[in-house]
Amino acid sequence: MADMIQILVLGLALGGVYALMGSGLSLVFGVMRIVNLAHPSLVMVGAYIAYWAFRLGGVDPMVILPVALVILAATGVLLYKLVFEREARSAKYSEMTVLLTFALAMVVEGALGTAFTNTQRVTSPDYATDAFFIGSVFIPKGQLYSGIVSLTIISALALFLKYSAFGNAIRATTQNRDAAELLGVNVNLVGLVSFAIGIGLAGAAGALVSFVFSFFPAKHWEWIAILMSLVVLGGMGSILGTVLAAFILSIVAAYVGFFFGATWSTLTFFVALFVVLLVRPQGLFGEKPELA
C-alpha cells in the first residue's frame, strides 16, 4: 500500500512540469493552429540557459526561470514575425507548420549540439537530490518544487485568459477567429502575443526540466511525442484538458513503470495517443473534428 501511495506521489510531482510544457504547446495550437514540433527543442534552450547560469554563476534555476521565459518569449516574437506570420491565411497553414517547425526543431538541436556538445547535463542545486519524508513516503524536493512552480505559472495564465480583456480576446480568437475580428480584435496581434507566451512557457519549463531530468540536445524528440499525447488527450487547444491529461498520464506512467519496469513507462504516452485518436479523437475537452 505504501508503494502505491509512493508511486502516486511521484506521478503527481512530475505531472506539473509536463502540464507546463503541454500548455504552451496547446495555447499556440489553439490560437494559431500551429502544430509546434519545435516546442520541446525550445524547452531544451531554456534548460541550457538554466544549466549555464547555475554552473557559471551559481544562480538557482528557479531564479533564472523568469529570464529564460523572457528570452524565449522574445525568440517567439522573432520567429512569429520571420516565419509564421506571412502564411497565416493559407488554407494549408496547420499542415505547413508541421514541416516548418520540424525543420526548426532540427536547426535548434544542431545549434545546441554545436554549442554545448551532446553530453548529458543536469542542473544540480541542493534540493534536486533531496527529499521530504511523510512517514515512509518520500517526495523528491526538486520534483515537488518544479510542480508547484509549474502550477503557479499555469494558474496565472488561466487567470489572465479568463479575466483580462486581452485574455478574453485570445480565447475568442481561439474559438471563432472571424467573429473576433468582426468585433474589433486585432487577431494578428493576438496571434503574436499568444505565440510569444507559448514559447516563453517553453523557456520557463526548460528551467524546471534542467534539474528534474538529465538532458542533451536530441532529447527533445523524446519529449515531442509525450507532449503531443498530452495535447491530444486533453483536446487540441484546451489548456485545462492538457493539464488534466498531464496528471493522468504521468500518474499512469508511474504505475506502469513500477509494475512492468521503467522501459515501459514511456510507452504509456504512445498507447494513450493511439487509443485517444481511435476512440475519442476530440480528446477530453476538444471540439469534435470537422470532416473537411
Binding site: N168, A169, A172, Q175, N176, D178, A179, L182, L183, V185
Partner: peptide
C-alpha cells in the same frame, strides 16, 4: 455585422460574449 453562423464564442459564457461585443470600447 452578424454573419450567418452567428459569430458567437461557444466556450465563453453569455456574459463574456456580451463583453466581447464591446471589446473596442475604452471605457470598461
Amino acid at each position: 455585422f452578424v454573419p450567418q453562423e452567428r459569430a458567437l464564442f461557444p466556450k465563453m459564457t453569455v456574459r463574456e460574449n456580451l463583453r466581447m461585443g464591446g471589446y473596442s470600447m475604452r471605457d470598461k
